Computed example of a mutant assay.
Amino acid sequence: MPRGSRHDLTGILLEAGLHPVLRVADGGEWRLDVTGRYRHLLGRRVRVAGIRSGFDLLDVLQIEQA
């Protein structure tokens, strides 16, 4: 997956230090560079749309409860 590619993912949002983590069904995890309000979604299943900006880092464009 090249940098700059768009991803639409669904998984569980977890707290993990500087960047929250999205744990997807296949066991993978993405770190999320997210601004704005997201803490009310921690521990819940969410949909995330974002642009890959690092090996496992997504710049979040949209996050919502799934």
Rank of each mutant, 00 (worst) to 15 (best):
residue 45 R to T: 08
residue 14 L to H: 09
residue 17 G to V: 05
residue 16 A to T: 01
residue 8 D to G: 01
residue 36 G to Q: 12
residue 30 W to S: 02
residue 64 E to H: 09
residue 1 M to R: 03
residue 17 G to F: 03
residue 10 T to N: 02
residue 63 I to Q: 11
residue 18 L to K: 05
residue 23 R to H: 02
residue 47 R to T: 13
residue 47 R to M: 10
residue 33 D to Q: 03
residue 17 G to C: 04
residue 8 D to H: 07
residue 38 Y to K: 02
residue 49 A to V: 15
residue 20 P to Q: 11
residue 39 R to N: 06
residue 1 M to D: 12
residue 2 P to G: 12
residue 46 V to K: 09
residue 64 E to K: 12
residue 5 S to Q: 10
residue 7 H to N: 05
residue 25 A to D: 15
residue 3 R to I: 13
residue 51 I to L: 06
residue 16 A to F: 07
residue 55 F to D: 15
residue 46 V to M: 12
residue 32 L to W: 04
residue 25 A to F: 07
residue 58 L to D: 10
residue 11 G to E: 10
residue 65 Q to K: 10
residue 9 L to P: 02
residue 43 G to V: 09
residue 45 R to H: 06
residue 52 R to F: 00
residue 17 G to N: 04
residue 5 S to L: 04
residue 12 I to N: 01
residue 24 V to L: 10
residue 50 G to Y: 09
residue 25 A to P: 01
residue 51 I to T: 14
residue 11 G to M: 02
residue 61 L to I: 15
residue 41 L to M: 14
residue 4 G to W: 03
residue 43 G to T: 05
residue 10 T to E: 14
residue 54 G to R: 07
residue 61 L to G: 09
residue 41 L to E: 11
residue 22 L to N: 07
residue 14 L to F: 03
residue 66 A to F: 12
residue 30 W to E: 03
residue 37 R to G: 10
residue 65 Q to R: 14
residue 20 P to H: 06
residue 1 M to P: 05
residue 5 S to A: 13
residue 51 I to D: 08
residue 32 L to H: 04
residue 44 R to K: 15
residue 53 S to R: 10
residue 45 R to V: 04
residue 22 L to G: 08
residue 10 T to H: 01
residue 56 D to C: 06
residue 48 V to R: 04
residue 17 G to Q: 05
residue 42 L to Q: 07
residue 18 L to G: 02
residue 15 E to L: 05
residue 64 E to I: 01
residue 46 V to H: 14
residue 31 R to M: 12
residue 42 L to D: 13
residue 11 G to I: 00
residue 44 R to Q: 15
residue 11 G to R: 00
residue 26 D to E: 14
residue 15 E to H: 05
residue 48 V to F: 09
residue 34 V to R: 03
residue 46 V to D: 15
residue 39 R to M: 07
residue 55 F to K: 12
residue 43 G to E: 15
residue 46 V to T: 09
residue 39 R to L: 13
residue 45 R to P: 00
residue 24 V to C: 11
residue 59 D to I: 06
residue 27 G to C: 12
residue 7 H to V: 05
residue 46 V to G: 14
residue 25 A to V: 02
residue 19 H to N: 13
residue 21 V to M: 15
residue 49 A to L: 09
residue 34 V to A: 02
